[in-house]
Computed example of a mutant assay.
Amino acid sequence: MKKFLKVAILMTLTGTLLVGCGGPGDQKAGAGKDTTIKIGHVEPENRSTHQALVHFKETVEKDTKGSVKVEIYPNGALGGDVQLTEAVATGSLDAALPSTSVLTAYADDFGVLDMPYLFTSSEAAFNAMDGEVGDYFTKKLAEKGLVNLGYTYNGPRSTTTNVRPIAKPADLQGIKMRVMESPIFIDYYKTLGANPTPMSFTEVYTGLQQGTVDAEENPPSLILANKFFEVQKYLSLDEHTHNFLAFIMNKGKFDSLSKEQQDALVKAAKAYVKEQRDMELKDNGEAIKKLQEAGMQVNSLTAEEKAAFRTALSSMYDTYRNKFGNDIFAKAEKYNK
């Protein structure tokens, strides 16, 4: 039934959006007229992605004096990240917030952003995504007919286990680690001697509970929201990856707006990104405290300990520098200084 509802909603959107959304070649014949922007994402309504997006909706509608209405479809109501991205690219959906991990289908080197310990802090990651690194990928998306309005933050990914705290590379030896179905994440854990097991996110709790896997990695806010503390003993704040979502919009839809509407949208999106990131950092800090209160043993890695992981991954970095080219790595790494 749930699958049927998703299909039904998407079919309805397809019928209504093809008129106003279209492909990249659409002209601005209707520029300035009243319009509706439909946005899909997979996050639950209590997450910063959605909560700040509600403020974005209010701002856009106010600043355009109601000429632009915004409708938000959370919880994967219109499909997962892959389906949402495809819908925006084809014009059957106006906008979405997919993880940059799935955008490798549009530009292979988006995979660089999944590299463990690429950034030394969330601040370095933010500066990179608001600077040359973000600009680089935004141009890649533009080539595919996608306008990018900014990069929101999905949190610093950290590790939970039932075996032992993770403080040095050798601590991962032999651990059965649940990972996303990402070649980079699989290579990361294989390089450090763990046994990576690709598994759907919806199966993680049961997998941990039954011992199919010993460990998983996610931002603390998601670890708390999904109650992994009930089936995990240790939380190691290694912050190995800083995850981002791209706020993408169909170019045909964007071009159909008047200059005033576009300016209002871009301005509101910039404010949205800042608010969402601030909320996510705050949520993660509060989540760590709550996870400790729930009984998890928490250890935080020092800068030196994180650097040791990066050194242990040198062979993996060599492989992906050859694959993606050193230029994009250099762009990213200069923000760590």
Rank of each mutant, 00 (worst) to 15 (best):
L97I: 12
A96S: 15
M199W: 00
A89V: 06
G193H: 07
R164A: 14
Y136N: 07
S121P: 02
N154P: 00
K190N: 13
T202N: 15
D108L: 13
T191Q: 11
D114V: 02
A167T: 12
V213M: 04
S99Q: 05
D94E: 12
D187V: 03
L93R: 09
P116I: 10
I175S: 02
T197I: 14
M129E: 10
G91R: 07
G131C: 11
V163W: 01
V102N: 05
D81C: 04
D109A: 12
M115L: 13
N154T: 01
E132K: 13
M115R: 09
T138E: 15
P198L: 07
D214F: 00
T152H: 00
L97F: 07
T159Q: 12
D187N: 09
L103V: 01
Q209V: 00
E203I: 01
V163A: 02
P198W: 01
G174T: 06
A89C: 03
G91H: 01
A87K: 04
Q83F: 03
K190L: 14
G91V: 05
G79C: 02
P169D: 04
V213P: 03
F119I: 11
L84M: 07
A194I: 05
G207R: 02
G155L: 10
Y106N: 07
T202L: 14
K190W: 00
L118M: 09
P156E: 11
K168I: 06
F137K: 06
Q209W: 04
T90I: 12
E181V: 09
F185E: 15
A124F: 03
V112C: 08
Y205G: 05
I175A: 03
A128T: 04
F110G: 10
D81F: 02
I175R: 05
Y189L: 08
L208G: 06
A142S: 09
G79H: 02
Y188E: 10
Y188T: 15
E143S: 12
E181N: 14
T90A: 10
K176R: 15
D130N: 11
N195Q: 15
N162F: 09
V179Y: 06
D214P: 03
T100H: 14
Y205S: 03
A77G: 08
L84P: 04
A77M: 12
V88Q: 03
V88A: 01
